[in-house]
């Protein structure tokens, strides 16, 4: 088997190109810069476009333009840059354009630092820009998934004509692991709604303005319908040893890798611990959490934030069984031993 030892951030770009992405518009920021660097290296030789935009705002609007043109387009950033892209994301969601945005989270708020955190959950999963829109959000936890979920993000973005965000963190982006790339590439079909600069497409209008309240309410309801469909069809998660677990650890991204080790460690001690790892953060695995609650399982949510995903777990379970919470912030990442000690408190 052919494997590449590659950084998560670079796997994003190769995956994107294999997924038919031909357009990258971005702005450098640690710890996401390798995505722009790899795009600048790999896209032009294969006929694609790389532009280092003048700002994050410009980058997302260039993506808006390329998506209007029917292309698969990508941009990437980290927290401060994602904040700036929110205007564009609202317009893209409203105009029903597909695109993929990668957020390699760093620690905030403000300038913060460059170490991993998960403090962008709210601005990415719950919105961030203005208006009633949602983005599909996928959370990889290894380099292979940086490739695979980027490719999936393009498919979901197209399927729903909606932005899809790959929400990674500094460690998942910076980490090198073996990746097996698919030995085929996606051909992007002509889309009947896009603009190609030809007679056939010139009657298409890409816009998010609806002057009448009736028209805008109807449009909003249409968008909500798409989000409801995503919640029915696109929920993805991974479970490890949850069947007989008394305590289910819940975490995504790099945290889920730590929790995986915690499960191994505590299982070796005979403790019934499992892991639920959300892969899609929107749509969220609320139904599965609710089922686990019915089975009487307790939860330990671990996050590198002030409990942003915790809110979603509380909503899903209605707090019918105890939910414990442990977090680190500011770029600090807990050790496996530290987490195991926390978990031991909540399981016999």
């Amino acid at each position: 088997m052919q494997k590449e030892l590659i950084k998560g951030n670079e796997a994003v770009v190769k995956g994107a190109i294999l997924a038919g992405c031909s357009q990258y518009y971005g702005y450098p920021i640690t710890p996401a810069s390798e995505i722009a660097q790899a795009a600048s290296r790999y896209l032009p030789p294969v006929g694609g476009t790389f532009i280092q935009a003048e700002s994050e705002v410009a980058a997302i609007n260039m993506v808006y333009g390329a998506a209007s043109a029917g292309m698969r387009a990508l941009t990437a950033s980290s927290g401060p840059g994602i904040s700036l892209k929110q205007e564009g994301l609202s317009y893209i969601a409203a105009a029903e354009l597909p695109c993929v945005v990668v957020d390699v989270m760093r620690a905030g708020p403000g300038l913060g630092n460059i170490w991993p955190e998960q403090g962008d959950y709210h601005q990415v999963v719950w919105g961030g820009g203005h208006g009633n829109y949602k983005c599909v959000v996928l959370a990889p936890n290894c380099a292979q998934e940086m490739c695979d979920l980027t490719m999936l993000a393009f498919d979901l973005a197209d399927k729903y004509r909606n932005p899809a965000i790959v929400l990674a963190d500094g460690y998942v982006g910076q980490m090198m692991e073996p990746v097996v790339f698919p030995h085929k590439r996606v051909k992007v079909p002509r889309r009947d709604w896009a603009l190609y600069g030809d007679a056939e497409s010139k009657r298409n209008v890409i816009s998010s303005i609806h002057m009448s309240t009736e028209s805008l309410e109807k449009h909003n309801n249409k968008l909500q319908g798409k989000y409801a469909e995503m919640e029915r069809s696109e929920v993805r998660f991974q479970e490890i040893k949850t069947e007989d677990a008394d305590l289910v650890l819940v975490g995504y991204g790099i945290v889920s890798r730590l929790l995986q080790s915690v499960v191994e460690m505590l299982r070796a001690e005979g403790k019934r611990v499992g892991l639920l790892r959300p892969i899609t953060l929107f749509p969220f695995c609320s139904k599965r959490l609710s089922e686990l609650t019915t089975q009487g399982k307790h939860f330990l949510v671990v996050e590198l934030s002030n409990g942003q995903m915790l809110k979603d777990v509380q909503l899903a379970t209605k707090e019918a069984t105890p939910i414990h919470f442990y977090n680190r912030m500011g770029g600090a990442v807990p050790s496996v031993d530290e987490l195991a000690n926390v978990a031991r408190k909540y399981v016999k």
Binding site: A59, Y64, G65, A67, Y91, K202, S208
Partner: peptide, 27 residues
């Protein structure tokens, strides 16, 4: 009666950049 894209306030040149780079033959 041409292709139309509506951009956010001030962002038209960035949107136009994405369009033009995608379809260099377009006006």
């Amino acid at each position: 009666d041409v292709g139309n894209v509506q951009a956010a306030h001030g962002r038209a040149p960035a949107v136009a950049t994405g369009l033009k780079r995608s379809h260099p033959q377009s006006i």
